[in-house]
Amino acid sequence: MKSFIKKITIFLSLAVIGCNNNDNEFDATGTFEAVETIVSADANGPIKQFKIDEGQILEAGQTVGYIDTMQLYLKKKQLEAQIKTVLSKKPQIAVEVASLQEELLQAKRDRNRIANLVKADAATQKQLDDATSYIEIVRKKITAQQTSLGNTSASLSDEARSLVVQIEQINDQLSRSKIVNETKGSVIVKYAEENEITSVGKPLYKIADLSYITLRAYVSGDQFAQLKLGQKVKVFTDVDANGYKQTEGVVEWISDKAEFTPKTIQTKDERSNLVYAIKVKVKNDGLLKIGMYGELKFN
């Protein structure tokens, strides 16, 4: 379809170019176009809300609807409950080793008491050595238990972090369930309705910024030399029976490649149909529409 429209545009442009030799008032003709963006679903499920209409102007960042998120919400609540259960199993290391710490303090008191007895020749050196050895045994028990409990706590923390990552993934899916318009413009086509089942990548609507609109036209090789980027030109549109409406436009793009019409060149005369595509940016007062024809005058 685009190829057909392009051929028609080239044909009309050539017709105007040909008429220029007969003092026609226009230098070129073409059709208006705009950058059209298709907004697609970013989640799967039924569309619970979708409040847009064709022709409606939407702002960038505006939320226009959402896709059902109940199953995601329930999964998130389940994961949050799992995190609480996992964290509740984490050992309180200080409490767990409290009895051994108390045992260590008692062992130190016993060693001090025996040391005093040894000084008074009321206890043997072996008893003192045994008391000292027992202190080291209790210390090793404390270290071993702290290490074991620390490993258990770290393992449970890793498990909880894994669940937290899953929640973050669900939060991302929940945010994607919102239908957010990213580009300011007018709704050109609406493809879906509320309560329809959609899926990731399925088109929802098409939008285009029509505050400025582009006139694509074709000029001859002779006219090509008269144009430059940023050049102001006159744009004419046949809006009513009273005549043409004049608007100022700016040349924003000039093709650096020529096109032939027809494509198969047979004679030298046909090579005069060498044309270049150009784009002219025009401020839209609301009357200009995509696909509408427009004429150009360079001077």
Rank of each mutant, 00 (worst) to 15 (best):
I5S: 13
K7Y: 06
V16Y: 00
C19V: 05
D23M: 03
N24Q: 06
D27W: 00
A28V: 02
T29F: 02
G30Y: 00
T31G: 09
E33I: 07
A34V: 08
I38W: 13
N44Q: 07
K48P: 02
L72V: 07
Y73G: 14
Q82I: 01
S88A: 14
I93Q: 06
V95W: 04
K108L: 10
I114Q: 01
V118E: 07
A122G: 12
A131G: 09
E136S: 14
E136K: 15
I137T: 12
V138S: 08
R139K: 15
K140Q: 12
K141R: 15
A144D: 14
Q146A: 08
N151D: 11
T152H: 01
A160N: 06
Q166M: 10
Q166P: 05
I170V: 05
R176P: 03
S177W: 00
K178E: 14
V180E: 05
V187G: 06
I188L: 10
I188D: 10
V189P: 07
E194I: 15
N195R: 09
E196H: 07
I197P: 01
K206R: 13
L210D: 06
S220L: 04
F224E: 15
Q231D: 12
Q231N: 13
F236L: 13
D240V: 07
G243F: 10
E248N: 15
E252K: 12
E252R: 11
V275I: 08
Y276F: 14
D285I: 02
G286H: 02
L287C: 01
G291E: 03
Y293A: 05
